[in-house]
Design a binder for these strands. Sequence first.
DNA 1: GTCCAGGACCTAG
DNA 2: CTAGGTCATGGA
Length: 294
Amino acid sequence: MSLETSRKIFIVGDYDLAATLNSGQAFRWVEEGDGWSAVVDNRWVFVKQIGKGIEARVAEPVSDWRWLEEYLQVGVDIKAVTDSFPDDEPMREAVRACRGLRLLLQDPWECLASFILSSNKQITQIRQMVALICERFGEPVVSGESRGQGCPRSAFAFPSAARLAETSEEALRECRLGYRAPYLLKSARMVAEGEVELDRMREMGCGEAREELLKLPGVGRKIADCALLFAGGHQEAFPIDVWILKALKELYFARKRKVTPKRLQEFSMTYFGPHGGYAQQYLFHYMRKQAGRA
DNA sequence: GTCCAGGACCTAG
DNA sequence: CTAGGTCATGGA
């Protein structure tokens, strides 16, 4: 019998929680005072940075914290990862600006569904859409007994594919999804029916898993690569969005007049090494930080 | 009022 | 394979 606790400390260096939780890879984290809260693996959790690492609290005591350890990827040797990046000026700058930034390992469906909503939307708006579908269709995860003690009045899990599959396009449009509503609904149905097995994504090779994801409506190369990278553990996946496109053009192809998308895709897959997706996240956050200062 | 957002999809060249 | 238009909504 293992002891149940509602508090846990992860000893870890080089971990910047704020950068990690606010770098556009997950959309449920809300800043609360000196930390952040969200629902992970159907549990409400609050995390904050402390001297030696990360302190976590949950609403309902647990005996096993591996779910959070895996999600936060505290066991990853981040120095080994950043050392694998190409030794050029842009990457050195990005690493300097984003020290402690980590990739999370998220739930496949929540991650994929969130990124289906992400197309042509700002991160703040993606957060709003995700929050709405959780409030309206997600299971409540905070029981009556645990309310009050630093926990929220209510918190909701991200709705399963099966749950969303039984909603309607109209109900989803009322969550402000716009033209993304039918994409999410159809993808939810296909996942719920097992047409695409998201849970096998981590066992499959990156390319094979990508082909599966591309079968889903509303999922193109970029969104597929986000799911592969943020939930599939495939760190060679390299999502190219408008920010990364700008970064690649300005930092690596400034001399070229015209660069085709295909050329950029090839470059991104070969140049940045075995943890290319990680490098991509550093470039992404680096570009956004710079823009925020201007 | 204008521009654009962690794009996908459809059509025409 | 590339270029351009469209999609729904709302920050900036």
